[in-house]
């Protein structure tokens, strides 16, 4: 029983990370039709920024952690917004080329990160409480899992509130459904593009700092390895669907944890799940029609 609880909570924690990456991917794809390969780099950059700040502030205090979370998401948002303004926008409506540019950006930035911070993982320190465990239903659960789950829930609520209650949110929701019609109502959708990129980048940057604590280290490859699972999550959840991404994140991560623990084949099970979903529901759990 305690094992199951531990796996469940750990899976939720991992799912929270997936969601932080997938939410941005899904929103960006939904609104703009861009598959953003550079999204992992936003995450890695956020993680390194958070790590550098925490190190300068003395490492393992709570204020340092909070400051690093704030900085990580700010850096992620900034990097993402600049990517949209400088690269993506020039290729307006040319989706394949937009994907190619993000591929190039991801290759170049990962190499750059390796040049700056090296290829080896750098271990990060956190407040002592992070490494301790809390007992829940007989299971001893590392505390960082709760932080992850809490932050991801807050981000989900934040994004939902933003989408629901702001003018930009309204434009984004409408744009995901039918972008040409939004312009036909006299709205310049392109400004919303920068906004979704910034939101996605902020979530990824935040996810980067949290991922560095979840895994205990930060490396140039951090974003890339999470990105692939985030891709799978977005396809399973349905491209463009935020709630789909949230549900799929949890399902994928929990399944992965259980399969890993009992059979050691977590990653394969995830791919099998993807294949199964595609066979039964090509548009994903909550997706719109298949985008041809």
């Amino acid at each position: 029983m305690s094992t199951i609880v531990l796996l469940l909570v750990t899976g939720l924690g991992l799912g929270a990370l997936y969601f932080l990456v997938a939410s941005g991917l899904s929103l960006i794809y939904g609104l703009m039709g861009v598959l953003n390969f550079a999204h992992g780099s936003f995450l890695t950059l956020g993680a390194f920024a958070g790590f550098e700040l925490a190190r300068r502030l003395g490492g393992d205090s709570w204020p340092a952690l909070i400051a690093s979370l704030v900085l990580g998401s700010a850096v992620g948002a900034l990097a993402a917004a600049l990517t949209e303004l400088l690269l993506i926008r020039r290729l307006y409506e040319r989706h394949i080329e937009q994907v190619l540019v993000t591929v190039g950006l991801s290759l170049a930035t990962v190499a750059l990160f390796e040049g700056i911070w090296g290829t080896d993982p750098i271990y990060v320190s956190a407040p002592a409480w992070f490494g301790q465990t809390t007992e829940l239903l007989g299971a001893r659960i590392p505390n960082d899992r709760f932080v992850l789950i809490g932050v991801a829930a807050l981000v989900l609520l934040g994004i939902v509130a933003f989408l629901r209650f702001t003018r930009y949110g309204l434009i984004i929701r409408a744009g995901v459904e039918n972008r040409p019609m939004v312009t036909a109502l006299g709205i310049d959708v392109r400004r919303a593009f920068t906004v979704v990129f910034a939101i996605g980048g902020a979530a990824a940057g935040l996810g980067g700092v949290l991922a560095s604590h979840y895994f205990g280290y930060v490396s140039a490859q951090l974003g890339g390895s999470l990105l692939i699972f985030a891709f799978i999550v977005t396809v399973i959840g349905g491209l463009g669907s935020l709630s789909g991404a949230a549900i799929a994140s949890v399902v994928v991560a929990v399944l992965q944890q259980f399969a890993n623990f009992y059979w050691g084949v977590g990653d394969l099970v995830v791919v099998l799940l993807l294949a199964g979903v595609l066979l039964l529901r090509p548009a994903g759990i909550l997706g719109k029609k298949v985008h041809a």
């Binding site: 309204l170 929701r173 409408a174 459904e177 039918n178 040409p180 019609m181 312009t183 036909a184 109502l185 006299g186 709205i187 310049d188 959708v189």
Partner: peptide
């Protein structure tokens, strides 16, 4: 571009209505 044309006072009621169903 389309949005500027519309802003100048061209109202559009598209074929098949194209309302935003999720809104």
């Amino acid at each position: 571009p389309t949005h500027r044309i519309v802003q100048r006072g061209v109202g559009y009621v598209p074929e098949d209505r194209e309302v935003f169903g999720g809104l």
